[in-house]
Amino acid sequence: MSGAGVRAALRMGGALLLVVGLPAVLVTVWWFASAGSTSFYEPPLHRIVSTFGRVWTPERLRTDVLPSVLRLLGGYALAGAAGVGCGVLLGSYRTARAVAEPVLELFRAVPPPVLVPVIMLFAGIGDTMKVVVIAFGCFWPVLLNTVEGVRAVDQVADETARCYGVRGGRRLLRLVLPSAGPQIMAGLRQALSIGIILMVISEMFAASSGIGFTVVEFQRSFAIPEMWTGILVLGLLGVVLSLLFRLVEQRVLGWYHGLRGARREGGGGHA
């Protein structure tokens, strides 16, 4: 292996160590600190781990994890589309903003879990209710960030579009949305964590499947190690989704990270 190859490998190793270092330490501490635990509610980690494979069979992944994930994705996609759509509208028109602002502030102040019983009245206790709850919670960060992003479109960039006759849908696609992109993605990232929380909460109320439902079931039947495995599954799901999100973000906002890198390096933009 060449010297450069070794250095690259070392750098990669270093980066990997940074990422997995703290989690590894925490798991180790948990493992040994709980090893001798005789408490019924806090079983040793090795018991939780050995239970894991028995509980989360492919069958259960299909009947409980998959429905949860589908509801989450459904609500999230709905909120994303509605949030960006309304955000572009409110960000573009001052009058629309003035009219909508008080109502938005009111709705935004309502914690979404409170709405679960209310939405149950309208949407029943099926998947619709859960999707609506998730969508309602995810909508706000997307909306508010999109509004800010759209309002912050650079004046010179906008005058360039006007001067060259770039209008309407083309202006939206080539100027407004890409320019607001970093803000929109920030909103979508916040929305993702809110979505996961609401997915679990909505399943704890009235459900017959889902990760949240499973955790509550185990808890009620005093299957404590099994309950803990459910929480581990939720944590893992969160990690996986956030990694996926980062992959998408790096693709969509590749230009943004490049631009920021260029500015950091040489105060870019100067000859």
Partner: peptide, 18 residues
Amino acid sequence: PGLAIVFQEYGRSLYPWL
């Protein structure tokens, strides 16, 4: 269409995402 501008602030006039 008959008029085009070159702005002073090229960094803002060119779209960094294109």
